[in-house]
Design a protein around this nucleic acid. Sequence first.
DNA 1: AAACTATCTGTACGAATGTCCAGTAATCTA
DNA 2: TAGATTACTGGACATTCGTACAGATAGTTT
Lengths: 205, 205
Amino acid sequence: MIATDGRRVRGEASRQAILDAAVRVIAAGGLSSVTHRTVAAEAGVSTASTTYHFATLDDLLQATLSSLSATGVARLAQAVELSESGAFTLADAATTFLIEELGPNRDAFIANLELQFASVRRPAWSTVMTNTYDGFVELIEHYVGDEHAARAIFSAAFGFAVHHVIQDSHPTDATCRRFVEDLVAHYDVAKPNRSRSRRTRSSKR
Amino acid sequence: MIATDGRRVRGEASRQAILDAAVRVIAAGGLSSVTHRTVAAEAGVSTASTTYHFATLDDLLQATLSSLSATGVARLAQAVELSESGAFTLADAATTFLIEELGPNRDAFIANLELQFASVRRPAWSTVMTNTYDGFVELIEHYVGDEHAARAIFSAAFGFAVHHVIQDSHPTDATCRRFVEDLVAHYDVAKPNRSRSRRTRSSKR
DNA sequence: AAACTATCTGTACGAATGTCCAGTAATCTA
DNA sequence: TAGATTACTGGACATTCGTACAGATAGTTT
């Protein structure tokens, strides 16, 4: 059994510890402060350990991006589940998400953004990006029923978060809620079909 | 006269050449590829020349951010002038701006975004950020007449642009226009007062 | 127990980096 | 013309970086 090999499970644990440490390093000092040595020190492992688990520094960063995206999708799935149980509007989901990203989860959000920007120049990373993005859009589409509107809502909310990060602004919960409600109210009214039909996702931009 | 000193004007010219080269370097390889040597090579000057004009690398980056912000504000002022002559709606201005930023000006826009992100960890740069941001919001406010709506519109349009950059997506002009028109139509309807009253800018978030 | 394998580490090396400094050349001032 | 000022340059130095590699350690298999 591979899964119960004591060496492998410990190896996987330290691998994850390195990734978590990378997030902390990015959040603290930016992408440029990520080196094998800084991450190893933060994770409490030897320098060579990082090169063992991740052959090159780019591999380490890509794995960090994947890890962050995975947790993001997990939180997304949780939100979906809550919505399925009813009594949970799009505004609720988006508001709580924004409050989290700009509050307790802000450090990880910033690290995520820096990695996403780095992916602009690394085509190999693009698959991770589009997957998580499609996940978010599909959730919103589940509420709104229109792909175009879903994309617009996501862009706007994303811009709200990015903008407040860049401006080092910490909006209140009420500010977040007001922004989301204004935004959603518009597209909610404009939605052509509220029922969840089998969507034919267009591949055009 | 200081202004007509031949040495100084040439010095200022090469200083600007270095800043322009820095933008090109960032656009080509990202912030991490900015070194005294790469910028000097791109600008066609000696390595020591960059350290002469900018004592430290951080100074060079900050000056680059200021330079990019200045040109952005200049284009903003131009748009305002066009609007004053009438027959130029907010949707027109925002659409052309987005098309430019995501098209011919995309490289500089990406460089600008990377620098803006870098400012998150550099408090000394924040003044540049808030100044340009306030400029944009004031322009939108000129059309919409409501500060809150202006902020929301800016956030949404900004998110649209950032998102397409991260996704390496090149939206068509029609896509940009449709997004802007949907966005503006909402807040345009909701505007409480179209006339340009003397605004009392609130300092709250 | 013995052979094997996966994880981990100390150490090292060439390359690249930020920054300094002693000069040189061009221009201005008096 | 003589001196002062400004822009610019080649070269150097200490530091940090990515990465490789031989060996040590510990868990698994036979």
